[in-house]
Each structure stands twice: as C-alpha cells, then as structure tokens.
Simulated assay, not measured.
Amino acid sequence: MVRLPLTPDEIERGQRLGALLRRARGDRSMLTTALDAGVSPETLRKIESGRVATPAFPTIAAIADVLGLSLDEVWAQIRPTSDAGLAEARPA
C-alpha cells in the first residue's frame, strides 16, 4: 500500500498533538505513559515529536485516557483553525 504524502495541515496538526501530549505528560516518564497506554515508548516518542502526524485513533484514545485528557479536549487543541468556526455553527 502506498501512503500519500502528508499535507501541511496534517503535519501542523501532528505537531500540535505532540506538543499537547508532552505538556499533559509533564514530569511523568515516557516509558510509564507508553506502557500504561499499551503502546511502545518509540510510538509515543514519534507522536510527541510530530514524526507520526496521523496516529491511529485507538492509539490517541489510549494515550489521552492515561493522561486524563478527553478526546473532545484533544480535538479542540489540535483541529485546524478553519474548523473552529464550524463547530460553533453546528446545531447542538
């Protein structure tokens, strides 16, 4: 399977996700966080560094859960700025 190159928006979103996870992890070790989330430390390192800009949903859900982040909170922090106005315009 050929993977298409990432768009600039996907790369930027991956960088925002990595920064969010690093901040949420704080002083907690990467090893402990990764193992508690059921992912390899290498995977977590790549996500936090932005090298994996589009990680699988279950991976992000598991890491967010370990760090006490809601998925809504994660999306609010990483979504493209052009999506911000769309969320407000949608009916509840």
Rank of each mutant, 00 (worst) to 15 (best):
T59V: 06
E10R: 02
A19K: 07
I47M: 00
D65C: 11
R51A: 14
L69N: 01
R25V: 09
S70Y: 05
V52T: 13
I60Q: 08
L86E: 14
A56K: 09
A53N: 00
L44D: 10
I47G: 02
R25W: 07
L35S: 13
A19M: 03
A89W: 11
T32Y: 12
A61P: 05
I63N: 01
T32H: 14
E73W: 03
V66D: 01
T43W: 10
R51H: 09
A24T: 03
S82V: 12
A37R: 05
E12I: 00
F57Y: 10
G50R: 08
A62E: 01
L6D: 15
I78Y: 06
E48M: 08
L21I: 06
L20S: 04
R45W: 06
W75P: 05
A61K: 08
P8A: 09
A89I: 08
D27G: 13
I60P: 01
D72P: 10
A76Y: 11
W75K: 06
L71N: 07
A89N: 10
A24I: 03
T43Y: 11
S70I: 07
D27T: 10
P80W: 10
A37Q: 08
R13F: 02
I60A: 06
D65M: 11
R51G: 13
P41F: 02
G26E: 05
A76D: 08
E10P: 00
R90F: 14
A87W: 14
T32E: 13
A56R: 13
V74N: 04
V52E: 12
V52M: 13
E42M: 14
G38D: 07
P8W: 02
E42H: 10
A37M: 03
G14Q: 06
L21Q: 01
P58Q: 04
R51I: 07
D72S: 15
D27N: 14
L71W: 10
A61N: 09
A62L: 03
T33E: 07
G68N: 13
G14V: 15
D27W: 12
G50H: 04
V2P: 15
D72C: 12
I63V: 15
V39M: 05
P58I: 01
I47R: 05
A56H: 05
V66L: 00
G38Q: 01
T54P: 06
D72L: 06
T54S: 15
P5A: 09
P5D: 09
P58F: 01
A64C: 08
L67P: 07
G26H: 00
T43R: 11
T32D: 15
P8G: 02
L44K: 02
P58H: 05
R16W: 05
G14D: 12
V39C: 09
A61L: 04
G68Y: 01
A87T: 12
A56T: 02
G68E: 04
T43H: 15
L31R: 02
A64Y: 03
E88P: 12
L86N: 14
F57I: 08
P58V: 04
P55A: 06
T43I: 11
A87N: 14
T32L: 15
L17M: 04
R45N: 10
F57R: 11
L35W: 11
R23P: 08
